[in-house]
Each structure stands twice: as structure tokens, then as C-alpha cells.
Design a protein around this nucleic acid. Structure first.
Lengths: 225, 225
DNA sequence: TTTAAAAAGATAGTAACACTATCTTTGCAT
DNA sequence: ATGCAAAGATAGTGTTACTATCTTTTTAAA
């Protein structure tokens, strides 16, 4: 099978669609590398341009600024993850099993997806852990939200929220629990690797522990007493 | 009673102790205002200097850069909060009641503390919600962690983790649950105010709902079945 | 096959930002 | 009265975050 995944990205995310050209694809591919290497704060269009052999102005034709590029990358990631979830839970009836699959997907290192040629999902996953929240934790949220830039994130939350309700239709906080699962999958991973004394699984550095913590958290909460 | 609180801040947080001079206190007071107004990204030492009638160089004598200043503010906040926790749970025996107090402190708008003259805690609380995680979500974490810059945050987590263990000595993830409480108190607040469709209490904008969610989450998890 | 348009490359320029350096003045402690 | 630390004043540098314009290359329609 040689299938290629393509997500319909909100066209307010970019000035020119990066998926439509070689240069665009290079921008995505190498921005992921560069942000991963330097961190988002030290990442600049200048450095990216030099790396891929174009000019700053060239990058600016695709993205208004690096913040927009970050939002694009996060949006792409959440779209991709929603697809992974849909694929993984297909044919599964039991909502409990579904939720467990989701938790595993969120908290475990992603294996690279051969269906997307110019994105390295495992590095992107690392970026989302460290930089993902910066996409919305700023003064422009409301504005960006009006342009529906966070729709993929919201969609995934909605999907997870629905699963939670399927487990227990009386549970009161399905959406908040969904965001808790997502954000904590990432935060616990970050803490485990960088501030291990903040977690209960510092020494092993084992993602399976995060999965167990999240499963315990989620299923204790939603099960009817 | 006219008491003044003073926290011993790690002296790697600054170049010159801002609490020791009028200018230093002005820097703290007005940086809080300015970050709150503009967001951390748009905040610059130039703007701060103009606002308080000094020069950029003047600010640089106190803080290496704006990131260090952010770490200072977060460290101060967590120290202050740990004190608030200690004060609030004094004489309370029941660890369940203690935990409830902590959740309330974390998830509720702080009333301004008249014991600290040059910090506006309620605005600082708002800043910590939006900018707090940026103190550690970056490439310098490990380095900064070696200098113990995150100790106040860690200390508070340890205190909360201990309470959790007091509730149930067999609970396996006290530290991870502690960070979950802290971070989710803030994230749910941010979502409620900025991306309400991600929460289950969007329309009311009521912090009491966040408290209820967190209490449900925490006590479902730690209670033995 | 020519023609035009869109995309990319090349180059330049600007205001703001993130600092560093140095020199002078002020205040206060001995 | 002297000395020293803090603060003020001023200047300068390299980088960042753009915007503008002009030329060349690629692509796609006439």
C-alpha cells in the first residue's frame, strides 16, 4: 500500500500553502528539525532560510511569522493524531478500550508514519510537548481562535470527550478531562525527562508509567461509584 | 497587625537583589503590570525602563534578561503560594480538608495580600496562568534546574504530594497528581476564559466549577476502592 | 510556441530588540 | 571629607523581525 495522507488545513494558517510546493515542504520539514534543535525561542526564519538554501523573504511568503508557523505545526499534529485515533479505535466497541488506546497514543513516542513524506512525526511530537502550549498561551488567542486556528485541537478534545461520555454518560466533566489527558500526557513526559523529581517515575524514564498514571486518573474519575 | 512577608530568593535568580532597593521594587511591581498588559513575548526591558523612568541598562543591572525575570516572578509566586497554603491549613488535621483548601487556593482568584507591598498577587496570578509554564518549557531547563531556580515550584509540589499520601498512603502517583492539580487549575482557568469550548463550564465562567472538577478528579483517584 | 502569470531568488533597507560598555552623578556610610 | 556603591546618561553593536523591489525561473494557458 502506498497511501499518502493529506489534511485540509485552514488556509488562514499560512499565506501560501506549504504543501503545494517543494519549498513549502522544505520549510515544514526543516522548521521541525530546527525548532527541535534550538527551541522555539531561538528559532528564526533567517536560520531556517540559510538551512534550506533560500532567503528570509522566501519563508515570509509562506508564513506571516514564526508564531503562525508554530500554530500550523500544532494544527497539523493534532489533525494527524485525530486520524491516528480514528484508525486505531476502528472496529473497537468498548469505550474503555478506546480510551486506553487514546491514552497510549498520547503518552507514547510516536513511530514515524510512512504515509506522510515531509513531516517527521516523532520529532514533531517532541516539539509539541515542549512548545505546543505556546501556540495558544498568549495575547492573540482570542483572535486566532476566531480564525479557527485551534480547530484540530478542539476536534480531538471533542472526540475524547465523547469517548468519556460513552464510558459514563453521567460524568460531568468530559471536555475538561479530555484536555487534562492531553496536556498531562505531555507535561508528565516533559517532567520525566527534564524535572524528574516532579514525577513518580523519574528514575525509570518509562513512558508506560505515564500511561498507567493517566489510566488510573481517568478511570477512577469516570467510573460510577 | 503590620507584618511584612519576605521570601528568601535564590540569588542566582538575579544579578542584584530587587528587594534591596527602590528601583528593584519598581522593576518587580511594573514588570508584573507590563507583562500582564502586553504578554511576555511583547514585554521588553526598554518598555519597562521607560515606564518606570530609568534606562534599559538600569534593568540589566538587576536581571540578566527577561526570561530570568520571569523565572524570578514565578519563583516568588510559588514561594508566596506555599506560604498561603501553610497558613491556610494550619491547625487542620484532616488531609482531605487540607487538599480541598489547596485546590481552592490554586483555582480561585487570589485576593491581594496586604503583607507584600510591591507585588500585586492577583495580577501575578493571572500572569502565572498564561506565562508560568514558559519558565521551564525551553532548552535551558536543565541548566536552570541545576541552579535550583525551580525549587519553590518543586517544594509546593512536594507539600501537595505529601497531603495526597496522607489521604491514601497506597496511592501510587502523589507527585504526578500534585503537578496535575497545579497545572490543571491554571489550564482550565485559561481555557474557561479564552477557549471555553474546551471546558465543561464555559458559559458560567465560574471558578467554583473548576474547583469542583479538580476535587472530583483528585478524590476519585486517591480514594481506595 | 508564445505569452503571461505565479513562484522563487537576490538584494537592500528599517525599526525594534537584546544586549554591553563607559563615564558621570548622587547618596550614604565611615 | 573621603570612598564606594547605586543609579543615571549616553552610545554603540549585532541580531531579529520584518517590508520592498527588482530579476530570474518555472508553470500553465492561449
Amino acid at each position: 500500500m502506498n497511501i499518502q495522507l493529506k489534511f485540509n488545513m485552514n488556509d488562514k494558517l499560512f499565506l501560501r500553502d506549504p504543501e503545494q510546493s517543494e519549498l513549502g515542504k522544505k520549510i515544514i520539514l526543516h522548521s521541525v528539525q530546527l525548532i527541535h534543535q534550538n527551541g522555539f525561542e531561538a528559532f528564526t526564519f533567517k536560520k531556517l532560510a540559510t538551512l534550506i538554501g533560500t532567503t528570509e523573504a522566501g519563508i515570509y511568503r509562506y508564513f506571516e511569522n514564526k508564531h503562525r508557523l508554530l500554530i500550523y505545526l500544532t494544527a497539523w499534529y493534532w489533525s494527524w493524531l485525530e486520524y491516528q485515533v480514528a484508525f486505531n479505535i476502528n472496529n473497537i466497541k468498548d469505550p474503555t478500550v478506546k480510551l486506553k488506546r487514546v491514552i497510549k497514543l498520547l503518552a507514547t513516542t510516536v513511530e514515524n508514519d510512512s504515509n506522510t513524506l515531509y513531516v517527521d512525526e516523532s520529532i514533531l511530537h517532541q516539539i509539541i510537548i515542549t512548545e505546543g502550549t505556546k501556540a495558544y498561551l498568549n495575547k492573540r488567542v482570542s483572535e486566532d481562535n476566531k480564525d479557527h486556528l485551534f480547530k484540530p485541537y478542539k476536534d480531538l478534545c471533542a472526540v475524547i470527550g465523547k469517548m468519556i461520555l460513552d464510558c459514563n454518560p453521567n460524568y460531568k466533566y468530559p471536555k475538561s478531562l479530555a484536555t487534562t489527558i492531553i496536556e498531562m500526557a505531555h507535561f508528565q513526559n516533559f517532567f520525566m525527562n527534564n524535572l524528574p523529581s516532579l514525577t513518580d517515575f523519574g528514575q525509570h524514564k518509562n513512558e508506560a508509567e505515564i500511561v498507567r498514571f493517566l489510566e488510573d486518573l481517568v478511570f477512577s474519575s469516570i467510573k460510577t461509584p
